[in-house]
Amino acid sequence: MTQLDVLYRYGVPPTEASVLAMAKVREVYGVRHMALDEAKKTVRIEYDASRLTEPVIFELLRRAGLDIVETMPMFTPPPPPEPVAAT
Rank of each mutant, 00 (worst) to 15 (best):
Y8E: 00
I45K: 04
V19H: 14
K41G: 07
K40Y: 04
T87Q: 15
P83R: 06
Q3N: 07
L4D: 07
M1Q: 10
A49N: 12
V12A: 10
T53P: 08
L36D: 11
T53M: 12
S50F: 05
E46C: 03
A39I: 09
P83F: 04
G30T: 07
D5C: 15
Q3L: 08
I68G: 01
R63L: 03
M72P: 12
T15F: 02
I68P: 10
M74V: 03
L52W: 06
A17Q: 14
P14I: 01
L52Q: 06
V12T: 14
P77N: 09
P55A: 08
T15K: 09
Y29W: 13
Q3K: 03
P81Y: 02
A64S: 00
T87Y: 15
A39F: 04
A85V: 13
A35S: 11
R62Y: 11
L20K: 00
E82D: 06
M22F: 03
T15Q: 06
M72L: 14
I45M: 07
G11V: 08
P79K: 07
P81K: 02
T2G: 02
P55E: 00
R51M: 05
L20I: 02
E82A: 06
A23M: 07
V25W: 09
I57G: 01
D37L: 07
F58G: 06
F58L: 12
V69K: 13
T76L: 10
T53H: 11
L4I: 11
M1P: 05
D5E: 15
D48H: 04
D37H: 06
T42S: 04
P77F: 12
P80C: 02
L60G: 04
M72N: 14
P78H: 09
A35K: 08
E46F: 13
P79G: 03
E59W: 13
D5A: 08
L66W: 08
G30A: 07
Y47K: 06
M72T: 12
M72Q: 14
A64I: 00
F58E: 15
T71H: 13
E38V: 05
G65Y: 10
E82F: 11
R32Q: 14
I68M: 13
